[in-house]
Design a binder for these strands. Structure first.
Lengths: 238, 238
DNA sequence: GCAAAAGTGTTTGGTTTACACCCATGG
DNA sequence: CCATGGGTGTAAACCAAACACTTTTGC
């Protein structure tokens, strides 16, 4: 058998669809602010796909895990904070990078709002919106469609959203997007930003009540009745 | 920026956990045969892990998709037939191959019993059994434990079983393991081989009835009432 | 007082589970 | 006849959706 070192072999890179939550401003002292789902993109400065917007990531070093690679690449492109990473899918289409055969190990990342508001540099947060069957991304009046996204990164983003939607009710994805303590309305807003549908308050609360742990803290100064703060329930060992 | 061709980059391989169903022999003209879940393994002939049992797969060529690579490698190792492949996870631990940095794109494969009974050569089917928290594999009196499996392939097998268990009720995984026409009892036996728990006949039938399409064919010569044969229901376009 | 959100109780309808029972066949 | 599997009906238990209603705050 030949040595494995004889093969001309594919390059390996990572790409990360990192999401966070943004609390919008409120126009009314009574009204609660809205909640939107945001994704981290950067504008490519070199060919291929120069000028298009892409997911952070890069070529995997010889002794590096994909997670370490993503954290390194994100901190090169911006100063946003820590996030939880979950492997999504490996994209292997031989034509996906015009330079060479490059397979990409794609990750889903979840960042809390506090971590996400550190200074961004080459990367920027865009709100994610459905747009007639596809997706659109918006920031400060700049509106991107699928055609503005480089490589096959739109497909990666769609896979990441699919994973969030199918995982949200059963995993702790939503808690990674929230601060340590949160109200049940905040939790519901995050669910709704991900799933894109409303739920009735009473039913939603019954559904999540055994995934959260109540604290003795409350919100205040809100122009309406204070809300109890909750944390994620720690799993009970058996 | 450096050219991407300057990097010493990881090797890329595939590994496939391919399952099939085996219909056991019956000792009684009335009794239906049992059903067991089988996995395809081969014994490594070279170091590392010489003599251990491993999943089929191999190094990915520069212009090859992982699916093509797996089909090629399986036909090199044995003459078993076609199967459906579904990407599982990419295993990236820097220490997983003692020769070099090798990342493995792992797949779940599902083969029908008819395809699986073609001649096997270097590879062999083993029945999969739970064994005090871990797994065991058995064939013709040869019993393998986790320690007999090379590389991190035991972890890949566990991930594949997990995917089958969580996907079985919602996907058509079970239909890929069955012949074109099957009885509801055969379908139930496959579910039970995967999930490892019994279900009541009446309830099981209600659960699957809208995933299958009845035919006008029946089993015969079975020493009991003939069973209607079903096929997988084709999805209705809307 | 009142707008807004926090929070709870009840009714209704469907889905799941457990179990009882009858049917059809080959030897 | 009868063992064995094929197949159906039903009641109880559980869960989810819809909706009505009370509470609490800041201005």
């Amino acid at each position: 058998m030949d040595s494995i070192f004889d093969y001309e072999h594919p390059f390996v890179c990572t790409d990360a669809a990192i999401f966070t939550i943004k609390t919008e401003e409120s126009d009314n002292y009574r009204k609660l602010p809205g909640t939107s789902l945001q994704i981290l993109l950067y504008k490519r400065a070199t060919d291929p796909y120069m000028g298009r917007w892409c997911l952070p990531g890069g070529f995997l070093d010889i002794d590096e895990t994909p997670e370490d690679n993503i954290r390194r690449k994100v901190s090169e492109k911006s100063y946003v904070g820590e996030c939880r990473l979950e492997q999504l899918h490996t994209f292997c289409d031989p034509g996906r990078d015009p330079r060479a055969r490059v397979i990409s190990i794609a990750y889903l990342g979840l960042m809390s709002e506090a971590e996400s508001t550190r200074y961004e540099d080459k990367a920027a947060w865009f709100s994610v919106r459905p747009a007639d069957g596809s997706l659109a991304f918006e920031r400060d009046g700049l509106l991107l469609t699928g055609a503005d996204i480089g490589f096959d990164h739109l497909a990666i983003i769609e896979a990441a959203l699919g994973r969030m939607r199918s995982g949200a009710p059963y995993t702790d994805i939503v808690f990674d997007l929230l601060p340590e303590e949160f109200t049940l309305t905040q939790l519901q807003n995050v669910y709704e930003a991900i799933l894109g549908r409303r739920d009735q308050t009473a039913n939603f609360r019954r559904k999540v009540i055994d995934m959260v742990q109540e604290t003795d803290n409350y919100t205040s100064d809100k122009g309406h009745r204070p809300a109890r703060l909750y944390t994620k329930k720690q799993e009970v060992k058996q």
